[in-house]
Amino acid sequence: MDCDWPLLGPLRWLHYVNKQVKVRTGKGDEHSGWLLSVDPVSASAVLLTFSETAASVRVVMGHAVKEVEVLREADEVTAERLRAALLPPSPPSLDP
């Protein structure tokens, strides 16, 4: 999608949240991941990538974002995982 990312505003940023996106920077790098959030102050995009065993976050600064393309929507399992990703660590479960 061709857009002036930092100017889109909260409602249009929210549209990308919980979708798998590809972020292209002005330097030409591409980063794919699930979009967790967009900082409304700096327009920075928070991307989560995860495998069976590990997860990492990449934040692309708003001033560096050139283009954001939606790749796909989250299914239920992924959506749940995304919701849990930024929550404060939960106390250990009582279940064994």
Partner: peptide, 30 residues
Amino acid sequence: KEQHARSVLREGFLRCLLSMTNKKVQFQMY
């Protein structure tokens, strides 16, 4: 609606920054 969207997004970002505290972070710079 816009205020709510902004606060959800800001809270998510602030939580992300908080979760980085004392973590090793790799910065890609100009």
